[in-house]
């Protein structure tokens, strides 16, 4: 599984789709994205294991701003971060994309 992360609108999906030479439809069949939105669960390991069944998993980093005053928002950010850690553990390859540029964090370049 390839895990792609990075800030909002960084070009994560475009990068990995074009790096692998996939058309939109094929890509949609083997990839899941915005998984940070599913992060709030009592069973993060089970969620990570389930998501890791996909060939490509994409999450937006949302933990880099000022700690929110609202406890729910605070918990949501942390849960998203921890889900990303679990996905990175399960991934063969981890790539972070910033301004469309990929940085390899784990494994080998997919192409």
């Amino acid at each position: 599984m390839i895990f792609v992360t990075g800030p909002l609108f960084a070009g994560k999906r475009d990068y990995i789709r074009s790096a692998l030479g996939l058309d939109e439809e094929t890509f949609a069949g083997i990839a899941v994205w915005d998984v940070q939105e599913q992060a709030e669960t009592d069973r993060p390991e089970a969620l990570a294991a389930e998501l890791a069944q996909n060939d490509i998993v994409i999450a937006t980093e949302i933990g880099g701003g000022v700690v929110p005053i609202d406890p729910e928002q605070r918990a949501r950010r942390e849960a998203a971060g921890r889900l990303s850690c679990l996905l990175a553990e399960r991934a063969d390859t981890v790539i972070r994309v910033c301004c469309g540029l990929p940085q390899l964090l784990k494994g080998d370049w997919p192409c």
């Binding site: 980093e61 933990g63 921890r82 889900l83």
Partner: peptide, 11 residues
């Protein structure tokens, strides 16, 4: 250094 839930403590 790391953001919230980044795994910085465990690392």
């Amino acid at each position: 250094i790391g953001g919230a839930g980044s795994g910085k403590s465990a690392f």
